[in-house]
Structures are given as C-alpha cells and as structure tokens.
Design a protein around this nucleic acid. Structure first.
Length: 863
RNA sequence: GCCUGGAUGGCGGAAUUGGCAGACGCAACGGACUUAAAAUCCGUUGUCCUUUAGGACGUGUGGGUUCAAGUCCCACUCCAGGUACCA
C-alpha cells in the first residue's frame, strides 16, 4: 500500500495501517522514567463474554484513551494497560453444556475482545496484557490470599449460601435478585455450607475514613458509606424475668428506653429456646423452624409482620417494667446482637408489629410541631399512641427515681444522657455497629482460582509454601458440580491428593475456588510489573506508578468491586507491600448507552425486528398498532444491541470514538443514534479535506510562511485552549464542538499557515488517532504524532479588540452597543445612556440605578 | 420507604457557575450542482401572533430572592440508578 494512493478519507485503509504500526513499533510501550511525571490511567478490565464488545465498553475506553494521548503529548509518562477478567460463571456453564474446557472458550473470547479493542485504536501497552485465568497471574492472586490468611483475615465458617438447585450451583449475593437467580430467573434457597470468609469488617472504619480524601463522585462515596452502614448507638442489657439470662440488645435510640413496650429476638437467637415457657414452646418451635426454611424470596415478597410471644418477660432497666419477649423474623440475627427493644411509638417497624399484635404503644417524644406538620403527622395521634413519630421533639414520660431525667430534652441530647446513665450503672455501653458483613470468599465452582490450601490428615489446615504456587486447575472433562454443591474439583482424584513436600504428610486440597472478584481485586498492581516471575510486582516500580491517577468504569461496580479492592489494598498497605493507603485516587463513572426501542399502548417493549417505519411513525408488523419510540437498555431480546464492529466497518473506528464522545457528557445515560455517527463522520471527512486535496497532496493554500487574520488566529488559540481544558474536565463533547467550530471558521480562510494545520491535527489526534497519524504523516512528519508536543495557546490572541454589549432596560433587551473590550463599568454606563435608542426608551423616566458588567451587559433600572 | 442523579427545541445536547437560553451536531425545509439520485455546498429552522417592522411566550410544576434565574432558596411532580425490616 503506497500512501500517495490515499486521496479521499478512507478509514478502512488508514485505520488498520496505523494499528499495525503502533503494535509493531510498540509505540505505547512504557517504562519507569524518573525524568517525567507519571500518569496511571486505568480502565475497568472487561469480562470477555461470548457476545463480544458492546458499544458501552468503548465509551469509557475512548475517554481514558483521549486523556492518555493528551497527557503523553503534555510530557507525561503514561501507563495505560488492558487485560481480561476471564474467570466467571458463563464460561463454566458453557463448559458444562459442551464438556469442553472453559479455557478453550475463554481464549476464543479473549481473542475476539482483543481484536475488537485493537480495532478501535486505543493506546494500550500490550506488553502488559494480563489474564486472570493465566497461572502466571493467579499464582500471585493465591500469594495475596496467603498474605491475608497469614494476617488472620481469612477463616472457614459454615454459612448460609444462595443455592440454586436448577443451576446446580451456589450463587454470589450479587447474582441473586429478589430471591431468584440473575441468570435464568430460577428460585434460590438458603443452604448452610462450608465457606472461606474474609474479615472485611475489621477494616470497616478504615474503608469508611479512607473515602474522605478520594477524588470520587460524591454519589459513589455515599453508596459505599451506606453499604458500610456505620451507626452509633448503645448496647443495653435486659434481664429476663425469672432467669439468670440477660438479653443484650443494640439500639441507636437509647433515648427511647422509656417507650420500650416489648422486646424481639431473632428466631435464630441462641436464647430463644431457653427462655420460652412450656405453654408457648410448641408455637415458638414451629415459628423457628418455619423461619429457617423461609427463603429470601418469601421474605422479599411478604412485608407482613409475623411473630410469636415466647411467654417470657424482660425487665426494662430504666423503669423496672415487665415487657413481653417475642420472636420475629423482622429482627435479623446477623445484625447488632440479634435482639431489639421495641419502641412502637417511635419506630415504624415496631409500630406495625405492635398494631398487628395489639401491644401497648407508649409515646415518649412530643413531636416538633413544625416537623410534624411538614410530615403530615397529627401530634395528638402520636401522643395518644395512635401514630408513629420517628423525628425530632422533646422527651416526655422519661424519668426514673435513680437519677435519669430526660424530660424536656431534645432527642439528640437525650441519647447521650441515656447512654451515660446506662454506662455508669454497667447496664449498657455506647456501641458502634456496621451493616458491612464479612465477605464470603469461596465459590463451589471449577472455573476460578484454586485456594493455596490443603486439609491435612491430622485435621490441620495447611497453607502451601510459595514454592508450591501456583496451584493450577486440573484437566477435566466434566465440570458439573456435585449434587452436594461441592465443585467439580471434588471429582479430580489425582489433583485432590496432596503430599507435603517437607513432612510427607498427606492431605486433600481445598475444592472451593475463589470468586471472580479475586482477580480484579489487585490487577491494577500486576499491570505495573506484569512480566515479573519473581514477585507479584517490584516494590520500587510500585512506588513509582501508584496510585492509579484515573480509574474509569461503569457505576455498576460502585460498591462491591471498589470496596473489595480497597480492602485488599489496605491490607497490603498495612503489610508494607504497597506504598499508598488507597488504590484509586480519582474515579470516574461513564454512563450507560441505551438502544432505540419501541413500546406499544400498554407500555410493553416490542423487539426492533417487529417494527415498521412509515412517515416517521412506527407500527407493529403483526398487529399494525402504532408504537412509540423510546430509549431502552440494549438487550438481545429487544434486538437493539449495537455492535461496534458494524460501526467500524461502515464509518471507521475514529467515527465511533468521536461519536461516543460527542453524544453527551460522559457520565450521563444517553441513547444511541446511528445518524449521529454520520454527523461526526462528515466532520472527519471535512477535516481530511481541510488538509488533503483531490490528488492526495497537501492543499496549495497551506503554506509555511503565511499569517492568519486576527479573527482566525483567535479561533485557533481558542480551540487549543478549549480542547485542552475540556479534556482535563472530561468535557469531550464540547471539545469536539470546538474543533467543529474551528473547521467551520477555517473553511473560509484562503491561506493557512502549516503550523495552524499541524496544531489542529495534534488536537484531533487525541480523539481520532488514525486520521491524526495519517494527516500528520502527510504533512511531512516522520515521527508518530502520539508524542508530538501539545500545542500552546497565547492568552493575548484570545482577546477581542471590541465587544458587543447588550443594553437592557429593567432586564429587557433594548439594543446592542459595540465598545472597546477593555471598557470599564463607567464607560459602559456613559455609552449606553448616550445611545439614541436608550434615550428614547428612558425619556420621562427616572434612572434609579445602572448595572454595568464589563464584557457582558448594561442593565438600566428606570421607571 | 430511603440514598444518589436527572428533567432545556422535532431529537442528542451547550450555556464562561447569576449576565443575550438553545453553541455544536442530527432531522426537516428551501436553493445550487447533477440527465437523475447520492454525496457536497449555501440558506432557514424554539413556539405563537403579525404583511413587514415588530410583539408575546418559553429551560418538568407552583411559589420566592434579585437590576437580572436554566443556574440560588422553598414546596411538589415525573424519570433513571442503587438499596431495602440493618433497630
């Protein structure tokens, strides 16, 4: 292929050419370089699914690629890697169905993803490509597990897991939606199983505090805070009447102790059977066993309060009152102490329960009248115990003979007073609780990282030595899990057998594997030193690259992935293995791209292949019913998925990249419109024709030694400034607009300095790198444009000599005046008041005030 | 229910953070070129009234602050995402 043949803009020709060039020349290979500032830009690596890339992937990748290309041209040493999060359930399901090793399908998918990603011209350093299923990678995942284990953060526990009989597998919480499996919508039940757990709860406070200094979207930080769910309250002991037993409850409202009219234990609470009276025993046992078999689905479907009185009574420590002890499944055994004091007057759940079972409701807070009115609550009803009040107010009926006097206090003051009183009498103490639970870190699957663990004959658990890593997956043919839920590994007899190389003791390997989170918890560290066979990553080089300066990905990972990897990172930090307390300094979430869809009169979505268009209206092919067009999530079922390959084939990768950035702001959810791709494609053709004539040569009007008019020069410098600033602020859509404005302006220019054309090509190359490189080369440059210096702008050239100023009378436009750009408020006022139009308008009126804003407007207040 | 976003022409979206709403693009309409079409180029395009000139209205709804509000404050409606008996 000879370059001189390229006359018209032809992405099909130039794009593969430059992709090949970048790969062969390792243009984006990067090494540690102390002479340059470093910039680590990370994309959330994809799960290489069988259906390939969808248009949502390249959105975030394009944004980070533009920033990387910009940063390189600005002199930064840029680390920009890509890899594959390739363990996962779909590959295993496929393996089970076809009896082929999941690695085969995985490799196929990875190759397809790599091809697709490379066809979009991203500037990744491919020498750092990683794959979580590669033993060279998961050796170090296992090694990091060891670090956590040795720090005492991993343990085995018998816990209830989500068992899906239909899929024959255990599902992660995130794979269960409303009690049904995300894949296939099958029922899911709770089943106790032996699991590996991580004590992430030990890091709850650190994970919460660490959020403070991160440059993350506030919404994401808030979601993490909610997930961690810190609350400050008190634990209080209630003596059970006629027993030695005390029941400890957790409450965030110690101020409402005087309003406690009953108590509730979770059905699983250890004291339930001890305190139950004989006449209630049968009833209680029945409720407890029913609760055990109640699935999440049942719980999710029914919000009706149920429960049984145990027959026992507890003594309220503040007033000695006997209150009944109930059991109910609205109290969770896993949160707090698994028992609560119930204050129906001031807790909506307790109120519902008390109403259902006719338990006393005793008001002890007189609602703040303004708040009650705003919330549409009748104060009299609250005082009478007929309504529930959870807001602010003054305490009433809350005093005892033992020095506790809360009456008249506001809620926030009374909490402290009550807690102090309890603590002084050792009846309770202040207590902090977190919603965050320990992390179930094992899956009963084949296709995951094996644990570096063996269960020895003598009953001990052995962590394998570093020399024994990696523990690789055995070759198998049947990947179905056991009926018991144990993974297929339990069938790999040779593999299961373990002999300690030092002592010769025999053991059985762990048959659980790690969840998909494992590989993605630390991949950003491996990229730093991806080919290191000696360590997970070198300490010095980690110190150079970390933290990640920019992490771009979808908001669906807002909580789990980001929380889990922050947890691992904090552990590694405490162990001195990494140098920063947080992994991701800045986070940006790209929005979702929706497809075009149609809904009928009833509001049901209709698949796109059933829709006919006629005169701009849409009709159902079968029923003829008129349909309404609307954006909806892309899905195979609706047949509205846009495949990037098709867009690349029709318009080229540069057009796809540009369109995805031009659609709207990066974080917004926005609908795909292929017509819009035509628009940016037109822009790229204009950009080509701006530089290249019909014969494929540089246009004659581009000369090395001509000068621009002041106005054209201003537009050039304005464009340089705006594109750079917009990239820094993720305003890619407006940066593209500005480049369009530049071309519109320069279409009229008769003689163009070559330097101006080169400046434009450099700006464009960060967004549309293929056309950028091609034009750069055509302009006679021999080096890649990827490392050319980003153009500078001159603030002086941006200034206008004269500006148009709007003159308003009482905020309504009257006229426009042209004044010197540097005219001050006094000048503006004088010129405006001297204007004929203004004069006639204010004639006979008194000028009360004149507001003059230089460069903007003059507003005359006259009446 | 709670938390977090959001609502601007026929459509996607701009708006220097309080200063001419609708940049840029799409679509539509008119014109040029063409045997014709496509492509390309030029022009028009928020709505309504009006012959023009011009005028009125206009950023989800209702109120407020201000010389000036898409932008700030109060109340509400709707949409999207997250979460759900966490005491």
């Amino acid at each position: 292929m000879s370059d001189s043949n390229i006359r018209e803009y032809n992405p099909a020709e130039i794009e593969p050419k430059w992709q090949k060039f970048w790969l062969e020349n390792k243009t984006f290979k990067v090494e540690k370089d102390e002479t340059k500032p470093k910039f680590y830009a990370l994309d959330m690596f994809p799960y290489p699914s069988g259906s390939g890339l969808h248009v949502g992937h390249p959105e975030g990748y394009t944004a980070s690629d533009i920033i990387c290309r910009y940063k390189r041209m600005k002199g930064f040493n840029v680390l920009h890697p890509m890899g594959w999060d390739a363990f996962g359930l779909p590959a295993e399901q496929f393996a089970i169905q076809t009896n082929t090793h999941p690695a085969i399908k995985t490799e196929e998918n990875v190759n397809n993803f790599r091809r697709q990603i490379q066809s979009l011209g991203f500037s990744y350093d491919w020498d750092r490509e990683i794959n979580t299923t590669d033993p060279k990678y998961y050796k170090w995942t296992q090694w990091i597990f060891k670090q956590l284990y040795n720090k005492g953060l991993a343990y085995i526990d018998e816990v209830n897991v989500n068992w899906c009989a239909k899929l024959g597998t255990v599902l992660a919480n995130e794979e269960v939606i409303n009690g049904r499996s995300e894949r296939g919508n099958h029922p899911v039940e709770k089943k106790p199983m032996r699991q590996w757990m991580f004590k992430i709860t030990e890091y709850a406070e650190q994970l919460l505090e660490g959020l403070e200094d991160l440059d993350w979207p506030e919404g994401i930080k808030e979601m993490q805070r909610n997930w961690i769910g810190k609350s400050i309250g008190a634990e209080v002991d209630f003596v059970v009447d006629g027993h030695d037993e005390k029941v400890r409850v957790y409450t965030t409202r110690p101020d409402t102790l005087f309003g406690a009219t009953y108590m509730v234990l979770a059905p699983e609470h250890s004291l339930v059977l001890k305190i139950t009276t004989d006449e209630k025993r049968a009833e209680v046992e029945e409720y407890v066993s029913a609760a055990k078999f109640k699935s999440d689905l049942d719980r999710a479907e029914s919000k009706e309060k149920t429960g049984v009185h145990t027959g026992a009574y507890a003594i309220n420590p503040v007033n000695g009152e006997k209150i009944p002890v109930w059991i109910s499944d609205y109290v969770l055994v896993s949160y707090g102490t698994g028992a609560i004091m119930a204050v129906p007057a001031h807790d909506t759940r307790d109120f519902e329960f008390a109403e259902t079972f006719g338990i006393d409701i005793k008001c002890i807070i007189e609602p703040n009248t303004a708040e009650a009115k705003a919330g549409d609550i009748d104060v009299a009803s609250v005082l009478a115990g007929k309504a529930c009040w959870t807001g602010n107010g003054q305490l009433i009926n809350s005093a005892n003979d033992d020095g506790l006097e809360l009456n008249g206090l506001e809620v926030k003051d009374s909490k402290k007073a009550a807690t102090e009183w309890l603590a002084a009498r050792t009846l309770g103490e202040e207590k902090v609780n977190y919603k965050l639970r320990d992390w179930i870190f094992s899956r009963q699957r084949y296709w995951g990282e094996p644990f570096p663990i063996a269960h020895m004959e003598d009953g001990t658990i052995k962590v394998l030595d570093d020399e024994e890593l990696p523990v690789t997956l055995p070759e198998m043919e049947d990947f179905k899990p056991y009926e018991t839920g144990e993974s297929a590994l339990a069938r790999a007899e040779d593999w299961l057998e373990y002999t300690c190389p030092k002592t010769g003791m025999k053991g059985r390997r762990e048959t659980n594997t790690m969840p998909q989170w494992a590989g993605s918890c630390w991949y950003y560290l491996r990229y730093i030193d991806a080919c290191n066979d000696e360590e997970a990553f070198g300490k010095e080089i980690e110190n150079y690259w970390m933290p990640v300066d920019l992490y771009i990905g979808g908001a669906e990972h807002a909580v789990l992935h980001l929380l889990y990897s922050r947890f691992w990172h904090k552990v590694l930090f405490d162990l001195g293995i990494v140098s920063t307390p947080e992994p991701f300094q800045k986070l940006f979430n790209q929005g979702m791209i929706l497809g075009i869809s149609y809904k009928d009169q009833r509001g049901f979505l209709v698949a796109n292949d059933l829709v006919d268009e006629k005169d701009g209206k849409y009709f159902h092919k079968e029923t003829g019913e008129e349909l309404e067009q609307l954006p909806a999530k892309m899905s195979k079922a609706l047949k509205n998925v846009v495949n990037p390959d098709d867009i690349v084939n029709e318009f080229g990768a540069d057009s796809l990249r540009l369109y995805e950035m031009f659609m709207g702001s990066l974080e917004a959810t926005k609908p795909w419109d292929t017509k819009g791709v035509e628009g940016v494609n037109r822009f790229l053709r204009k950009a080509w024709n701006f530089v290249i004539d019909a014969d494929g040569n540089i246009r004659d009007c581009i000369k090395p030694d001509v000068e621009l008019s002041k106005e054209s020069r201003r537009v050039l410098h304005q464009t340089i400034k705006k594109v750079g600033n917009d990239i820094e602020e993720f305003g890619f859509n407006t940066a593209i607009s500005q480049m369009m404005i530049f071309l519109n302006e320069f279409a009229k220019v008769k003689e163009i300095p070559k330097s101006a054309v080169e400046d434009f090509v450099k700006l464009l190359s960060s967004f549309a790198p293929h056309i950028g490189e091609e034009l750069w080369q055509k302009l006679g440059n021999t080096d890649t444009v990827a490392y050319a210096a980003w153009p500078e702008y001159n603030e002086d050239f941006l200034k206008l000599d004269e500006v148009e100023i709007l003159v308003q009378l009482l905020g309504k436009p009257v006229t426009k005046i042209v004044v010197a750009a540097n005219a001050g408020p006094k000048d503006l006022e004088a010129i405006a008041l001297a204007d004929e139009k203004v004069k006639s308008k204010i004639e006979g009126k008194t000028v009360r005030k004149v507001i003059a804003v230089p460069g903007r407007l003059v507003n005359i207040v006259a009446n």
